[in-house]
Nucleic acid binder design. Structure first.
Lengths: 145, 145
DNA sequence: CAAAAATACTTGACTTTGTCAAGTATTTTA
DNA sequence: TAAAATACTTGACAAAGTCAAGTATTTTTG
């Protein structure tokens, strides 16, 4: 086995493990009015200045038509307002309504409480430790890009 | 903001980041004859002694009927052999064929090369560092369960 | 400046993926 | 030994995602 091969296998093992962790944490979508993808879209809408479908697609990989329909559904549900950009008539500026913001906050709370649960049994020190490792991984992987 | 709230938010941020990493690494399924779920099932089949649908469902969350159909399709594609267990006639023992093993190895190679690519720009020291952090996270989260 | 190309979004038709519930065969329990 | 439980299968359906053509607007270019 090449020296690297073992490392790669261990990283894959971690990925399988962490895929499960994420899967568990995503359970909060089950009793929400949103699918996972809708949740991600809503996240982008609530965290992007001058949001548009174009900008959303810069951040998440999603089919243009599919996204268009999700936005249409959000609009019908009263979660967002779409208005043509005055600067560029091709763009639709997307703004969350109060209701949209509320539902997003709700979703966040549910997600947060699952995470709180996950780290519930860890001591303060262990939690810091966990976060340090996470941030370390991020720095390394971002560097590697 | 509660002291924990900030930590939770940072963990979520890492999760979003890592979801993307995993998404990128899962691209290797795109030009394979398997869907992501099929890949996971095949993984279980190739890594479980006396494998059966029951055992697969102990390791991955999947609808019983859906799994049954995936296994049926694997069988038709000549990737596995299903035979009733002599010990318990309700169970079907699943064994990968040579072809199944080959295709699984193939899938692994593709996945491995994407990971190699991911860590390609890291030094030996950084790689070890990365793995240490991953294993640290796993230990912490498994402890927290 | 007008025609062509590109961009942003929408829509229709379709495939894939996943779910739910009822059904069959076998084993375990009472 | 009848009833309940388990392991798997099947049919009908719903949700999620993809592909390609179409519309409106803007940018590029000869």
């Amino acid at each position: 086995m090449k020296p690297d091969q073992e490392l790669v296998e261990k990283i894959r093992s971690f990925n399988r493990f962490y895929t499960n962790v994420i899967g568990l944490l995503d359970q909060y979508f089950l009793d929400s009015p949103f699918s996972l993808t809708e949740g991600r879209v809503l996240y982008e809408i609530c965290n992007t200045e001058e949001c548009s479908a174009k900008k959303i697609r810069e951040n998440i990989v999603i089919d243009e038509g599919y996204l268009s329909r999700i936005l249409e559904s959000f609009s019908k549900r009263g979660l967002i307002k779409k208005t043509p950009s005055p600067k560029d008539g091709r763009l639709r500026i997307i703004v969350p309504t109060e209701k949209g913001k509320r539902e997003f906050a709700n979703l966040n709370n549910n997600s947060n409480s699952l995470i709180s649960q996950l780290i519930g049994k860890l001591s303060e020190e262990e939690r810091e430790n966990l976060l340090n490792k996470m941030e370390g991984i991020r720095i390394l992987l971002e560097k590697a890009k």
